[in-house]
Design a protein around this nucleic acid. Structure first.
Lengths: 205, 205
DNA sequence: GTCTATAGGTGGATAGAC
DNA sequence: GTCTATCCACCTATAGAC
């Protein structure tokens, strides 16, 4: 039985997207995180939503448009999560734990970080997606470097290199731990690496 | 002008493979490392070698067979490189530098580690390739854990977790640093992370 | 071993009816 | 907004001549 993707809800869709577009992005996001951008097709999404491919093309005319929307939304949602950490947690150590938990929840959901996945496929992606990807990593690095600076000032963290360099090390370590852990279907592998990242920064040792 | 893939050389091909198969694997390996297993086709290889797709199927009947051969050869070559380190370098610190340099040379070649790339695509791979991939990571972990144990015994390294856990952390950090650095086309990003891995283990601090 | 030719399937994408 | 129908390019793979 066909389910309509039309936005029938009384409330406006979350962020300028119709509920149909949101439903499509939700499925596409999961597929992209588990199979990669080159690993899913319009047919896969259509089958899951029980609509036709043509209907998907109405909302996202090309796969590039879909892919761009995917990364944009992911980056925006991630930025929102970082803002939430900024507002809630006080201590740099708590903020860093919050950051690591963002990754942990992705892994717990049996997914790879969308942008880590796309980084692997980078050279095959449309330029517009490549640009979005860079924005994502730059944003992460900037935010993390800020937390690291504060932590060092307050004496909570201790590290030798620049905050920016250390931020890059942490991002790479988390993405890589996730990448490998997924081949073992073992979230604990990721958590062990995440714990290491946190402990390594602790000033008292 | 067509170049024949037939093995015309007087010397036997490197390891049970015909020189034709070797040439195919060389091209396929580079494509897999830069675009992913789902990001290249028989047509890509055929165009580069100036032969037909049918000719490739003679040497590797299916893409799965090609993919399996790819990971097998990569794992064997990597094992050989680890053996070479075992024989040449004495100090655990030197051995670890040698290990990191294996990754660095992949990155310097504008490639991603084949198995890191395939780890991203893991859920879309044939079972035979998934199994090979696990063997690769297990081998790395085992070898690295041995070096870490020796280094701790000799006083060269200092770390808190088990050697196996720390080995996993290091592998993940190197794979992830490579993954992200490739989006920036910046080998220095990788080298900075690699240097961090080495310094973090140094006992004198 | 390599070719031509082709099969059968799937990819992204569009026209036009409803 | 969603459908049916269709296009064309590309995919992996095979048959059979040379």
């Amino acid at each position: 039985m066909k389910k309509s993707l039309k936005n029938n809800s009384k409330v406006p869709a979350t962020s300028g997207q119709s509920s149909a577009a949101t439903a499509i992005l939700d499925v596409a996001e999961r597929l992209a995180q588990t199979r990669g951008y080159n690993g899913f097709s319009y047919a896969d999404i259509a089958a899951e939503l029980d609509v036709t491919k043509a209907s998907l093309h109405y909302h996202f005319p090309s796969k590039e448009a879909l892919g761009r929307a995917l990364v944009e939304r992911y980056r925006t949602a991630f930025a929102g999560a970082l803002d939430a950490i900024d507002r809630s947690a006080g201590e740099p150590a708590a903020m860093l734990r919050g950051y690591v938990d963002l990754y942990r929840s992705v892994m717990a959901n049996d997914r790879m970080c969308l942008c880590g996945m796309l980084a692997a496929e980078f050279s095959t992606l449309p330029a517009s997606m490549q640009a979005e990807l860079i924005r994502f990593f730059d944003m992460n690095e900037r935010w993390l470097a800020g937390v690291l600076e504060n932590g060092r000032r307050s004496g909570a963290f201790s590290y030798r290199e620049s905050a920016g360099d250390r931020a890059r090390v942490i991002i790479g370590a988390l993405e890589g731990a996730m990448l490998v852990a997924r081949s073992y279907r073992d979230a604990d592998r990721f958590s062990a690496a995440a714990a290491h990242v946190l402990e390594e920064l602790a000033a008292a040792r």
